[in-house]
Design a binder for these strands. Structure first.
Length: 487
RNA sequence: GGGCCAUUAGCUCAAUCGGCAGAGCAACUGACUCUUAAUCAGUAGGUUGAAGGUUCGAUUCCUUCAUGGCCCA
Protein backbone atom coordinates (compact mmCIF):
# COMPACT_ATOMS: atom_id res chain seq x y z
CA UNK A 1 0.00 0.00 0.00
CA UNK A 2 2.91 2.30 0.67
CA UNK A 3 4.64 1.89 -2.64
CA UNK A 4 4.11 5.52 -3.47
CA UNK A 5 5.45 6.66 -0.15
CA UNK A 6 8.40 4.32 -0.47
CA UNK A 7 9.71 6.21 -3.46
CA UNK A 8 9.13 9.65 -1.98
CA UNK A 9 12.14 11.95 -2.02
CA UNK A 10 12.37 12.05 1.75
CA UNK A 11 12.83 8.32 2.07
CA UNK A 12 14.92 8.12 -1.06
CA UNK A 13 17.56 10.55 0.17
CA UNK A 14 17.82 8.65 3.44
CA UNK A 15 18.20 5.37 1.59
CA UNK A 16 21.01 6.92 -0.44
CA UNK A 17 22.76 7.86 2.79
CA UNK A 18 22.18 4.35 4.06
CA UNK A 19 23.96 3.06 0.97
CA UNK A 20 26.85 5.45 1.58
CA UNK A 21 27.37 3.92 5.02
CA UNK A 22 27.34 0.40 3.65
CA UNK A 23 29.70 1.26 0.78
CA UNK A 24 32.16 2.83 3.20
CA UNK A 25 32.24 -0.15 5.53
CA UNK A 26 29.93 1.11 8.27
CA UNK A 27 27.09 -1.02 9.58
CA UNK A 28 24.00 1.22 9.62
CA UNK A 29 22.28 -1.21 11.97
CA UNK A 30 24.98 -1.91 14.57
CA UNK A 31 24.85 -4.79 17.02
CA UNK A 32 25.59 -3.01 20.27
CA UNK A 33 27.23 -0.02 21.85
CA UNK A 34 28.86 0.27 25.24
CA UNK A 35 26.76 3.19 26.44
CA UNK A 36 28.30 4.23 29.73
CA UNK A 37 26.46 7.42 30.56
CA UNK A 38 22.88 8.64 30.70
CA UNK A 39 22.39 12.11 29.30
CA UNK A 40 20.62 13.40 32.38
CA UNK A 41 23.48 12.20 34.62
CA UNK A 42 26.33 13.73 32.65
CA UNK A 43 24.58 17.09 32.53
CA UNK A 44 23.86 17.00 36.26
CA UNK A 45 27.43 16.05 37.07
CA UNK A 46 28.89 18.82 34.95
CA UNK A 47 26.47 21.26 36.54
CA UNK A 48 27.94 20.32 39.92
CA UNK A 49 31.65 19.91 39.27
CA UNK A 50 32.30 21.70 35.95
CA UNK A 51 35.20 19.40 35.13
CA UNK A 52 35.73 18.31 31.58
CA UNK A 53 35.23 14.63 32.23
CA UNK A 54 35.10 12.07 29.43
CA UNK A 55 31.69 10.65 28.57
CA UNK A 56 30.31 7.93 26.35
CA UNK A 57 26.64 8.06 25.56
CA UNK A 58 24.11 7.37 22.85
CA UNK A 59 20.76 8.60 21.65
CA UNK A 60 18.66 9.86 18.79
CA UNK A 61 19.66 12.93 16.76
CA UNK A 62 16.86 15.46 17.29
CA UNK A 63 18.29 18.57 15.63
CA UNK A 64 21.33 19.43 13.57
CA UNK A 65 23.08 22.73 12.92
CA UNK A 66 25.94 22.22 10.48
CA UNK A 67 28.36 25.08 9.87
CA UNK A 68 30.84 23.99 7.24
CA UNK A 69 33.68 22.34 9.14
CA UNK A 70 31.90 22.17 12.47
CA UNK A 71 28.44 21.61 13.75
CA UNK A 72 26.12 21.34 16.70
CA UNK A 73 23.51 18.66 17.08
CA UNK A 74 21.19 17.54 19.83
CA UNK A 75 20.80 13.94 20.94
CA UNK A 76 18.05 12.57 23.13
CA UNK A 77 17.98 9.41 25.18
CA UNK A 78 15.47 8.03 27.66
CA UNK A 79 16.59 10.54 30.27
CA UNK A 80 17.02 13.80 28.44
CA UNK A 81 18.63 15.81 25.71
CA UNK A 82 22.12 17.24 25.26
CA UNK A 83 23.92 19.28 22.66
CA UNK A 84 27.01 17.84 20.96
CA UNK A 85 29.70 20.01 19.35
CA UNK A 86 31.69 18.43 16.59
CA UNK A 87 34.72 19.99 14.83
CA UNK A 88 36.36 18.55 11.78
CA UNK A 89 39.84 18.94 13.31
CA UNK A 90 38.84 17.28 16.59
CA UNK A 91 37.59 13.90 15.35
CA UNK A 92 39.06 11.14 13.16
CA UNK A 93 38.65 12.06 9.50
CA UNK A 94 36.00 9.44 8.79
CA UNK A 95 33.85 10.54 11.71
CA UNK A 96 33.21 13.96 10.26
CA UNK A 97 32.03 12.35 7.03
CA UNK A 98 29.76 10.14 9.11
CA UNK A 99 28.43 13.27 10.78
CA UNK A 100 27.69 14.85 7.42
CA UNK A 101 25.66 11.82 6.39
CA UNK A 102 23.51 11.80 9.52
CA UNK A 103 19.83 12.66 9.46
CA UNK A 104 17.62 13.90 12.24
CA UNK A 105 16.17 10.72 13.72
CA UNK A 106 19.32 8.60 13.42
CA UNK A 107 20.53 6.85 16.54
CA UNK A 108 24.23 7.37 17.27
CA UNK A 109 26.88 6.75 19.86
CA UNK A 110 29.08 9.64 20.97
CA UNK A 111 32.34 9.91 22.91
CA UNK A 112 33.78 13.18 24.11
CA UNK A 113 34.26 15.51 27.01
CA UNK A 114 31.84 17.79 28.77
CA UNK A 115 32.18 21.55 28.33
CA UNK A 116 30.13 24.69 28.32
CA UNK A 117 29.60 26.79 25.18
CA UNK A 118 30.12 30.54 25.12
CA UNK A 119 26.38 30.96 25.47
CA UNK A 120 26.51 28.72 28.54
CA UNK A 121 24.94 25.50 27.32
CA UNK A 122 26.32 22.29 28.78
CA UNK A 123 27.49 20.25 25.80
CA UNK A 124 29.65 17.34 24.72
CA UNK A 125 32.77 18.14 22.71
CA UNK A 126 32.76 15.18 20.38
CA UNK A 127 35.94 13.12 20.00
CA UNK A 128 34.30 10.31 18.03
CA UNK A 129 30.89 9.26 16.86
CA UNK A 130 29.29 6.20 15.38
CA UNK A 131 26.04 5.54 13.60
CA UNK A 132 24.12 2.84 15.46
CA UNK A 133 20.79 2.81 13.65
CA UNK A 134 19.76 4.58 10.46
CA UNK A 135 16.33 6.16 10.50
CA UNK A 136 14.44 6.13 7.20
CA UNK A 137 11.48 8.36 8.06
CA UNK A 138 11.64 12.06 8.86
CA UNK A 139 10.51 12.97 12.36
CA UNK A 140 7.54 15.29 12.92
CA UNK A 141 8.20 19.01 12.97
CA UNK A 142 10.77 19.97 15.59
CA UNK A 143 8.96 22.98 16.97
CA UNK A 144 5.26 22.12 16.88
CA UNK A 145 5.77 18.40 17.49
CA UNK A 146 3.09 15.88 16.60
CA UNK A 147 -0.37 17.27 17.33
CA UNK A 148 -2.71 15.08 15.30
CA UNK A 149 -4.31 12.88 17.97
CA UNK A 150 -4.99 10.05 15.61
CA UNK A 151 -1.34 9.88 14.54
CA UNK A 152 -0.22 10.19 18.15
CA UNK A 153 -2.25 7.12 19.11
CA UNK A 154 -1.53 5.09 15.99
CA UNK A 155 2.19 5.85 16.03
CA UNK A 156 2.72 6.23 19.75
CA UNK A 157 6.48 5.84 19.29
CA UNK A 158 6.56 9.14 17.42
CA UNK A 159 4.45 10.75 20.11
CA UNK A 160 7.00 9.54 22.67
CA UNK A 161 9.97 10.78 20.67
CA UNK A 162 8.73 14.30 20.09
CA UNK A 163 6.29 15.03 22.94
CA UNK A 164 8.23 14.72 26.22
CA UNK A 165 5.16 15.06 28.47
CA UNK A 166 3.77 11.80 27.12
CA UNK A 167 6.61 9.78 28.56
CA UNK A 168 6.07 11.35 31.97
CA UNK A 169 2.50 10.05 32.09
CA UNK A 170 3.67 6.51 31.46
CA UNK A 171 6.50 6.77 33.96
CA UNK A 172 3.93 7.93 36.52
CA UNK A 173 1.68 5.03 35.54
CA UNK A 174 4.46 2.56 36.23
CA UNK A 175 5.32 4.22 39.54
CA UNK A 176 1.69 4.23 40.67
CA UNK A 177 1.29 0.55 39.91
CA UNK A 178 4.50 -0.46 41.63
CA UNK A 179 3.50 1.68 44.62
CA UNK A 180 0.17 -0.14 44.86
CA UNK A 181 2.05 -3.46 44.76
CA UNK A 182 4.43 -2.28 47.44
CA UNK A 183 1.53 -1.15 49.63
CA UNK A 184 -0.46 -4.37 49.29
CA UNK A 185 2.53 -6.63 49.74
CA UNK A 186 3.40 -4.73 52.92
CA UNK A 187 -0.14 -5.53 54.13
CA UNK A 188 0.43 -9.27 53.58
CA UNK A 189 -1.42 -9.53 50.29
CA UNK A 190 -0.22 -12.19 47.84
CA UNK A 191 -0.11 -11.22 44.18
CA UNK A 192 -1.70 -13.95 42.06
CA UNK A 193 -2.72 -14.61 38.47
CA UNK A 194 -6.01 -16.18 37.45
CA UNK A 195 -7.40 -17.29 34.09
CA UNK A 196 -7.90 -14.81 31.26
CA UNK A 197 -9.65 -17.53 29.25
CA UNK A 198 -12.82 -18.63 30.96
CA UNK A 199 -15.60 -20.97 29.92
CA UNK A 200 -18.02 -19.03 32.14
CA UNK A 201 -17.19 -15.33 32.04
CA UNK A 202 -18.25 -14.15 35.48
CA UNK A 203 -17.65 -11.60 38.19
CA UNK A 204 -19.26 -8.63 36.46
CA UNK A 205 -22.23 -7.60 34.38
CA UNK A 206 -20.80 -7.08 30.92
CA UNK A 207 -20.64 -8.65 27.50
CA UNK A 208 -17.53 -10.74 26.91
CA UNK A 209 -15.31 -11.26 23.88
CA UNK A 210 -15.87 -14.72 22.53
CA UNK A 211 -13.22 -16.97 21.04
CA UNK A 212 -12.82 -20.62 20.26
CA UNK A 213 -10.73 -23.31 21.88
CA UNK A 214 -9.64 -25.55 19.01
CA UNK A 215 -8.44 -28.59 20.94
CA UNK A 216 -11.63 -28.75 22.97
CA UNK A 217 -13.80 -27.47 20.13
CA UNK A 218 -15.61 -25.23 22.57
CA UNK A 219 -16.46 -21.59 22.88
CA UNK A 220 -14.35 -19.79 25.42
CA UNK A 221 -14.35 -16.18 26.60
CA UNK A 222 -11.86 -13.51 27.52
CA UNK A 223 -12.52 -12.66 31.11
CA UNK A 224 -14.63 -9.68 32.14
CA UNK A 225 -13.33 -9.94 35.73
CA UNK A 226 -11.08 -12.20 37.82
CA UNK A 227 -13.46 -12.06 40.80
CA UNK A 228 -14.80 -15.61 41.02
CA UNK A 229 -11.32 -17.13 40.73
CA UNK A 230 -9.79 -14.83 43.31
CA UNK A 231 -12.49 -15.78 45.81
CA UNK A 232 -11.85 -19.47 45.12
CA UNK A 233 -8.27 -18.77 46.20
CA UNK A 234 -9.53 -17.24 49.43
CA UNK A 235 -11.62 -20.39 49.95
CA UNK A 236 -8.32 -22.22 49.62
CA UNK A 237 -6.97 -20.38 52.62
CA UNK A 238 -4.87 -17.61 51.15
CA UNK A 239 -6.49 -14.86 53.12
CA UNK A 240 -5.29 -11.80 51.24
CA UNK A 241 -4.89 -11.87 47.46
CA UNK A 242 -4.70 -9.31 44.71
CA UNK A 243 -4.32 -9.29 40.96
CA UNK A 244 -3.42 -6.38 38.68
CA UNK A 245 -4.21 -7.42 35.16
CA UNK A 246 -6.28 -6.95 32.06
CA UNK A 247 -10.04 -7.35 31.77
CA UNK A 248 -11.87 -7.40 28.46
CA UNK A 249 -15.37 -6.07 27.90
CA UNK A 250 -17.07 -6.12 24.56
CA UNK A 251 -18.52 -2.64 24.58
CA UNK A 252 -18.00 0.83 23.15
CA UNK A 253 -15.01 3.08 23.59
CA UNK A 254 -15.05 6.60 24.94
CA UNK A 255 -13.12 8.89 27.23
CA UNK A 256 -13.46 6.45 30.12
CA UNK A 257 -13.66 3.08 28.38
CA UNK A 258 -11.20 0.94 26.47
CA UNK A 259 -12.25 -2.63 25.54
CA UNK A 260 -9.23 -3.97 27.40
CA UNK A 261 -8.39 -2.23 30.62
CA UNK A 262 -6.32 -2.86 33.70
CA UNK A 263 -8.00 -3.71 36.94
CA UNK A 264 -6.81 -4.14 40.49
CA UNK A 265 -8.92 -6.65 42.34
CA UNK A 266 -8.21 -7.68 45.90
CA UNK A 267 -9.88 -9.83 48.53
CA UNK A 268 -9.30 -9.72 52.25
CA UNK A 269 -10.70 -12.44 54.50
CA UNK A 270 -12.40 -11.62 57.81
CA UNK A 271 -13.29 -8.18 56.48
CA UNK A 272 -16.31 -6.35 55.12
CA UNK A 273 -16.95 -3.35 52.90
CA UNK A 274 -16.20 -0.94 55.73
CA UNK A 275 -12.67 -2.30 55.88
CA UNK A 276 -12.48 -1.88 52.09
CA UNK A 277 -13.31 1.82 52.42
CA UNK A 278 -10.41 2.31 54.79
CA UNK A 279 -8.16 0.36 52.47
CA UNK A 280 -9.12 2.59 49.52
CA UNK A 281 -8.38 5.70 51.54
CA UNK A 282 -5.02 4.28 52.57
CA UNK A 283 -4.05 3.23 49.03
CA UNK A 284 -4.82 6.67 47.58
CA UNK A 285 -3.09 8.48 50.39
CA UNK A 286 -0.05 6.25 49.99
CA UNK A 287 0.15 6.86 46.23
CA UNK A 288 -0.19 10.59 46.83
CA UNK A 289 2.61 10.55 49.34
CA UNK A 290 4.99 8.16 47.56
CA UNK A 291 4.57 9.28 43.95
CA UNK A 292 3.43 12.90 44.18
CA UNK A 293 4.60 13.89 47.66
CA UNK A 294 1.21 15.44 48.28
CA UNK A 295 -2.23 14.69 49.64
CA UNK A 296 -3.79 17.10 47.22
CA UNK A 297 -4.13 16.41 43.50
CA UNK A 298 -5.22 18.82 40.78
CA UNK A 299 -7.52 17.14 38.30
CA UNK A 300 -8.98 19.24 35.46
CA UNK A 301 -8.32 22.41 37.46
CA UNK A 302 -10.12 21.06 40.53
CA UNK A 303 -8.26 20.67 43.80
CA UNK A 304 -8.94 17.24 45.22
CA UNK A 305 -7.96 16.31 48.74
CA UNK A 306 -6.97 12.73 49.47
CA UNK A 307 -6.98 13.21 53.22
CA UNK A 308 -9.10 10.65 55.02
CA UNK A 309 -11.81 10.10 56.06
CA UNK A 310 -13.63 10.48 52.76
CA UNK A 311 -17.31 11.28 52.59
CA UNK A 312 -19.60 8.26 52.89
CA UNK A 313 -23.22 8.47 51.85
CA UNK A 314 -25.77 5.89 50.81
CA UNK A 315 -26.93 5.63 47.23
CA UNK A 316 -30.45 6.67 48.19
CA UNK A 317 -29.44 9.52 50.49
CA UNK A 318 -27.13 10.89 47.81
CA UNK A 319 -30.15 12.00 45.75
CA UNK A 320 -31.42 14.19 48.57
CA UNK A 321 -28.00 15.73 49.02
CA UNK A 322 -26.90 16.18 45.40
CA UNK A 323 -29.90 15.85 43.08
CA UNK A 324 -32.46 17.86 45.02
CA UNK A 325 -35.07 15.13 45.04
CA UNK A 326 -35.67 11.88 46.87
CA UNK A 327 -35.97 8.43 45.39
CA UNK A 328 -37.28 6.85 48.60
CA UNK A 329 -40.80 8.22 48.32
CA UNK A 330 -41.23 7.31 44.65
CA UNK A 331 -42.57 4.19 43.00
CA UNK A 332 -40.51 2.40 40.40
CA UNK A 333 -42.92 3.64 37.71
CA UNK A 334 -42.37 7.23 38.77
CA UNK A 335 -38.62 6.77 38.74
CA UNK A 336 -38.69 5.07 35.36
CA UNK A 337 -40.52 8.02 33.90
CA UNK A 338 -37.57 10.23 34.85
CA UNK A 339 -35.14 8.16 32.80
CA UNK A 340 -33.86 9.05 29.37
CA UNK A 341 -36.08 7.77 26.59
CA UNK A 342 -33.81 4.95 25.52
CA UNK A 343 -33.51 3.59 29.07
CA UNK A 344 -37.22 3.71 29.94
CA UNK A 345 -38.13 0.36 28.45
CA UNK A 346 -34.76 -1.29 29.01
CA UNK A 347 -34.44 -0.73 32.74
CA UNK A 348 -37.08 -2.61 34.69
CA UNK A 349 -35.35 -3.35 37.97
CA UNK A 350 -35.44 -0.79 40.75
CA UNK A 351 -31.72 -1.07 41.41
CA UNK A 352 -30.80 -0.37 37.78
CA UNK A 353 -33.31 2.46 37.46
CA UNK A 354 -31.84 4.19 40.48
CA UNK A 355 -28.29 3.62 39.25
CA UNK A 356 -29.16 5.16 35.88
CA UNK A 357 -30.69 8.21 37.59
CA UNK A 358 -27.65 8.39 39.82
CA UNK A 359 -25.34 8.57 36.80
CA UNK A 360 -27.21 11.61 35.53
CA UNK A 361 -28.16 13.55 38.65
CA UNK A 362 -25.55 12.68 41.28
CA UNK A 363 -22.34 11.29 39.82
CA UNK A 364 -21.15 14.49 38.05
CA UNK A 365 -21.34 16.31 41.39
CA UNK A 366 -19.07 13.91 43.23
CA UNK A 367 -15.84 15.85 42.85
CA UNK A 368 -14.13 15.22 46.19
CA UNK A 369 -13.53 11.52 46.99
CA UNK A 370 -16.86 9.98 47.96
CA UNK A 371 -18.04 6.50 48.84
CA UNK A 372 -21.55 5.80 47.60
CA UNK A 373 -22.81 2.91 49.71
CA UNK A 374 -25.64 0.44 50.04
CA UNK A 375 -27.01 -0.39 46.62
CA UNK A 376 -30.38 -1.95 45.88
CA UNK A 377 -30.07 -5.72 46.04
CA UNK A 378 -31.22 -6.71 42.57
CA UNK A 379 -28.30 -5.16 40.71
CA UNK A 380 -25.54 -6.78 42.76
CA UNK A 381 -25.70 -10.59 42.61
CA UNK A 382 -22.33 -11.24 44.27
CA UNK A 383 -22.88 -9.02 47.28
CA UNK A 384 -24.05 -9.78 50.80
CA UNK A 385 -27.39 -8.46 51.97
CA UNK A 386 -27.09 -5.37 54.18
CA UNK A 387 -26.97 -6.32 57.84
CA UNK A 388 -29.73 -3.86 58.75
CA UNK A 389 -31.87 -3.60 55.59
CA UNK A 390 -32.66 -6.65 53.52
CA UNK A 391 -33.57 -4.60 50.43
CA UNK A 392 -29.99 -3.36 50.22
CA UNK A 393 -26.57 -4.92 49.76
CA UNK A 394 -23.27 -4.01 51.39
CA UNK A 395 -21.62 -2.49 48.36
CA UNK A 396 -19.96 0.81 47.59
CA UNK A 397 -18.53 2.58 44.62
CA UNK A 398 -15.90 5.25 44.99
CA UNK A 399 -16.07 8.46 42.97
CA UNK A 400 -13.50 11.17 42.41
CA UNK A 401 -13.89 14.10 40.04
CA UNK A 402 -17.14 12.61 38.78
CA UNK A 403 -15.37 9.41 37.73
CA UNK A 404 -16.15 5.98 39.10
CA UNK A 405 -12.81 4.60 40.23
CA UNK A 406 -13.71 1.53 42.24
CA UNK A 407 -16.30 -0.89 43.44
CA UNK A 408 -16.36 -3.08 46.55
CA UNK A 409 -18.56 -5.38 48.56
CA UNK A 410 -18.94 -7.50 51.57
CA UNK A 411 -18.70 -10.68 49.52
CA UNK A 412 -21.72 -12.94 49.41
CA UNK A 413 -20.55 -16.24 50.89
CA UNK A 414 -23.79 -18.11 51.49
CA UNK A 415 -23.80 -20.76 48.73
CA UNK A 416 -27.57 -21.22 48.78
CA UNK A 417 -28.22 -17.51 48.41
CA UNK A 418 -25.55 -17.27 45.76
CA UNK A 419 -27.22 -20.03 43.79
CA UNK A 420 -30.56 -18.19 43.98
CA UNK A 421 -28.98 -14.93 42.87
CA UNK A 422 -27.33 -16.62 39.92
CA UNK A 423 -30.68 -18.21 39.04
CA UNK A 424 -32.31 -14.78 39.01
CA UNK A 425 -29.53 -13.52 36.74
CA UNK A 426 -30.06 -16.44 34.40
CA UNK A 427 -33.76 -15.57 34.27
CA UNK A 428 -32.86 -11.99 33.34
CA UNK A 429 -30.55 -13.35 30.71
CA UNK A 430 -33.21 -15.47 29.09
CA UNK A 431 -35.55 -12.47 29.07
CA UNK A 432 -33.02 -10.59 26.97
CA UNK A 433 -30.44 -8.85 29.19
CA UNK A 434 -27.19 -10.09 27.68
CA UNK A 435 -25.19 -8.38 30.40
CA UNK A 436 -26.78 -10.46 33.14
CA UNK A 437 -24.49 -12.95 34.84
CA UNK A 438 -24.33 -16.67 34.23
CA UNK A 439 -24.73 -19.64 36.52
CA UNK A 440 -21.39 -20.85 37.78
CA UNK A 441 -22.01 -24.07 39.68
CA UNK A 442 -18.34 -24.71 40.25
CA UNK A 443 -18.05 -21.36 42.00
CA UNK A 444 -21.11 -22.13 44.13
CA UNK A 445 -19.49 -25.42 45.00
CA UNK A 446 -16.41 -23.61 46.26
CA UNK A 447 -18.65 -21.50 48.50
CA UNK A 448 -20.16 -24.71 49.83
CA UNK A 449 -16.74 -25.53 51.25
CA UNK A 450 -16.77 -22.17 53.02
CA UNK A 451 -15.55 -18.70 52.04
CA UNK A 452 -14.73 -16.78 55.21
CA UNK A 453 -16.32 -13.37 55.62
CA UNK A 454 -14.47 -11.42 52.97
CA UNK A 455 -14.23 -7.88 51.69
CA UNK A 456 -13.48 -7.42 47.99
CA UNK A 457 -12.40 -4.38 46.05
CA UNK A 458 -11.84 -3.50 42.42
CA UNK A 459 -10.08 -0.34 41.23
CA UNK A 460 -9.81 0.66 37.58
CA UNK A 461 -6.12 1.33 37.18
CA UNK A 462 -6.44 3.30 33.95
CA UNK A 463 -8.92 5.73 35.48
CA UNK A 464 -6.83 5.95 38.62
CA UNK A 465 -3.83 6.89 36.49
CA UNK A 466 -5.98 9.41 34.59
CA UNK A 467 -6.85 11.02 37.89
CA UNK A 468 -3.30 11.17 39.22
CA UNK A 469 -1.82 12.41 35.91
CA UNK A 470 -4.59 14.92 35.16
CA UNK A 471 -5.45 13.15 31.90
CA UNK A 472 -8.87 13.72 30.37
CA UNK A 473 -8.98 10.57 28.24
CA UNK A 474 -8.21 6.93 28.94
CA UNK A 475 -6.37 6.99 25.61
CA UNK A 476 -3.74 9.21 27.16
CA UNK A 477 -2.79 6.63 29.80
CA UNK A 478 -2.74 3.53 27.58
CA UNK A 479 0.19 3.26 25.18
CA UNK A 480 -1.80 1.68 22.39
CA UNK A 481 -5.48 2.46 22.92
CA UNK A 482 -7.98 0.57 20.85
CA UNK A 483 -8.71 2.34 17.56
CA UNK A 484 -10.70 1.33 14.54
CA UNK A 485 -8.55 -0.09 11.77
CA UNK A 486 -7.34 2.58 9.38
CA UNK A 487 -8.76 0.97 6.25
C1' G B 1 -26.50 5.80 19.81
C1' G B 2 -27.26 11.49 18.59
C1' G B 3 -25.22 16.45 17.37
C1' C B 4 -21.17 19.58 15.98
C1' C B 5 -16.19 20.08 14.06
C1' A B 6 -11.87 18.36 11.54
C1' U B 7 -9.20 15.67 7.50
C1' U B 8 -4.76 20.19 2.27
C1' A B 9 3.22 18.45 1.16
C1' G B 10 6.76 13.92 5.87
C1' C B 11 5.08 17.51 10.24
C1' U B 12 2.48 22.33 11.81
C1' C B 13 -0.87 25.30 9.35
C1' A B 14 -2.93 29.06 5.21
C1' A B 15 -5.94 29.62 0.75
C1' U B 16 -11.16 36.23 0.33
C1' C B 17 -17.75 35.33 -2.75
C1' G B 18 -16.78 28.86 -6.40
C1' G B 19 -11.64 31.24 -10.31
C1' C B 20 -3.68 29.28 -11.44
C1' A B 21 -3.14 25.16 -3.98
C1' G B 22 0.68 28.49 -0.44
C1' A B 23 4.06 29.28 3.97
C1' G B 24 7.29 27.59 8.00
C1' C B 25 9.92 23.33 9.55
C1' A B 26 11.88 18.79 7.40
C1' A B 27 14.37 17.31 2.46
C1' C B 28 17.86 18.38 -1.74
C1' U B 29 22.29 21.68 -3.98
C1' G B 30 25.88 25.31 -2.41
C1' A B 31 28.42 28.77 1.49
C1' C B 32 29.74 28.85 6.62
C1' U B 33 34.77 26.09 12.87
C1' C B 34 30.29 28.62 19.30
C1' U B 35 25.23 27.34 16.79
C1' U B 36 20.79 26.43 19.52
C1' A B 37 13.44 27.31 16.11
C1' A B 38 21.40 28.69 13.38
C1' U B 39 21.95 31.97 9.14
C1' C B 40 22.40 33.07 3.75
C1' A B 41 21.45 31.74 -1.71
C1' G B 42 18.89 28.31 -4.69
C1' U B 43 15.83 23.58 -5.87
C1' A B 44 12.19 20.12 -5.37
C1' G B 45 7.90 18.32 -2.95
C1' G B 46 0.19 17.81 -3.84
C1' U B 47 -5.06 12.33 -6.85
C1' U B 48 -6.73 18.79 -1.14
C1' G B 49 -9.36 11.47 3.44
C1' A B 50 -12.62 8.22 -0.39
C1' A B 51 -16.70 7.86 -3.93
C1' G B 52 -20.50 10.38 -6.35
C1' G B 53 -23.28 15.03 -7.64
C1' U B 54 -24.08 20.45 -9.03
C1' U B 55 -21.07 23.82 -12.17
C1' C B 56 -17.75 26.42 -17.89
C1' G B 57 -14.79 25.67 -13.44
C1' A B 58 -14.93 22.56 -6.69
C1' U B 59 -9.91 22.58 -1.27
C1' U B 60 -14.47 25.70 -1.24
C1' C B 61 -21.45 23.96 -2.45
C1' C B 62 -24.53 19.10 -1.97
C1' U B 63 -24.94 13.54 -0.86
C1' U B 64 -22.86 9.09 0.96
C1' C B 65 -18.83 6.74 3.29
C1' A B 66 -14.14 6.35 6.33
C1' U B 67 -11.14 7.91 10.41
C1' G B 68 -10.42 11.14 14.48
C1' G B 69 -11.82 14.97 18.05
C1' C B 70 -15.34 17.61 21.17
C1' C B 71 -20.14 17.80 23.37
C1' C B 72 -24.62 15.23 24.65
C1' A B 73 -27.07 10.49 26.01
Amino acid sequence: MDEKKEISDLIQSRKEKLSWFIENGYNPFEYNFDKKDKIKDIKAEFEKAENESPVKTAGRVMANRLMGKAGFFDIQDGTGRVQVYIRKDHVPEGDFKVYKHLDVGDIIGVEGTMFKTRKGEISILCSSLKLLTKSLHPLPEKWHGLKDKELRYRQRYLDLIVNPDVKDVFIKRSLIISTIRQFLISKDFLEVETPMLQFIPGGASARPFKTHHNALNREIYLRIAPELYLKRIVVGGIERVFEINRNFRNEGMDRNHNPEFTMLELYQAYSDYNDMMELVEDIFEFIGKQVFDSNEIIYREQKISLLKPWKRISMQDSFEEYAGFSVKDKSITELQSMLEEKDKIKQVKLGKVIEKLFEVYVQPKLIQPTFITDFIKDSSPLTKVHRTDEKLVERFEVFIAGMELGNAFSELNNPMVQKERFAMQVEERTSGNDEAQRMDDDYVKSLEYGLPPTGGLGIGIDRLVMFFTDSSSIRDVIFFPHLKPEI
